[in-house]
Design a binder for these strands. Structure first.
Lengths: 134, 134
DNA sequence: CGGAATCCCGCTGGATACTG
DNA sequence: CAGTATCCAGCGGGATTCCG
């Protein structure tokens, strides 16, 4: 609850924490990335992403719809079909996201090496930090 | 090595989940953003960020050091001084992070409006989705 | 098929106290 | 000052089941 009176830093912090509540979410990013290609239906998304529970898919899609990042279109056919697509806002987010993806592609291997080297030399395996994703 | 049937989607997913384990972390991003300005000492970081426990600061810094994103320099003075600074890798991450920050600055208000409108019209407040940060 | 509601476990991460 | 070690509450999120 401490309020440092630094306009520069804390302003950035506020913005970042705002965007982090969106971007920091694993599934949110996944969904946006997948929807860049083309609109998808619910189970199509579920299958494409793989590893997401329908609960989290529903929640995340609803949050994204709430934020105006994706549109939800219901086709009143016999088996109900619901299509999700990125809005303009959603697309705009995909751009910095792509930048992040590019950074990952360029540096993720290096990071893997760094971790191996760090763990190799007198590594305090103690409260093991961020696990290396595979 | 890699690459089953869908090189496009699943490849991106893998990259993204890797980078998300870094970027998705609130404190990691905070620390990197703060260290962009200049190197800082432990308690300096703690004070500047504000709201982080020293435990999380220690953990996150160690993880960043492990990844080769920040350097840790110990000055063997009477009260021990430890300076943390971004490495080249850390700086390179700060660029896409800035892009994200810029996106946030440009669209975060619009998102706030969208949420209000969505909540206003027949909003299922049920398992309330992502909370609106203030 | 798309989605809501319940249950429940595990890990994240905060508070606190101790050490070099 | 910098860091470690415990303890523990909260909630993120998976599995399952039921509805329109």
């Amino acid at each position: 609850m401490t309020m440092p009176a630094l306009p520069g830093v804390s302003a950035h912090c506020r913005k970042m924490s705002s965007v982090l509540s969106i971007v920091g979410d694993k599934w949110t990013v996944m969904i946006v990335m997948v929807l860049i290609e083309r609109p998808r239906r619910f189970n199509d998304l579920k299958r494409t992403i793989g590893g997401i529970s329908q609960q989290m898919l529903t929640r995340t899609l609803k949050a994204l719809e709430r934020d105006g990042m994706v549109s939800r279109t219901v086709h009143p056919t016999v088996p109900p079909q619901v299509e999700y697509a990125l809005t303009e806002l959603g697309y705009s987010l995909s751009e910095p996201l792509r930048a992040l993806g590019a950074w990952a592609g360029a540096h993720i291997e290096k990071i893997g090496e760094n971790r191996l080297r760090y763990d190799g030399s007198g590594a305090p395996t103690s409260t093991s930090p961020l696990p290396l994703p595979r």
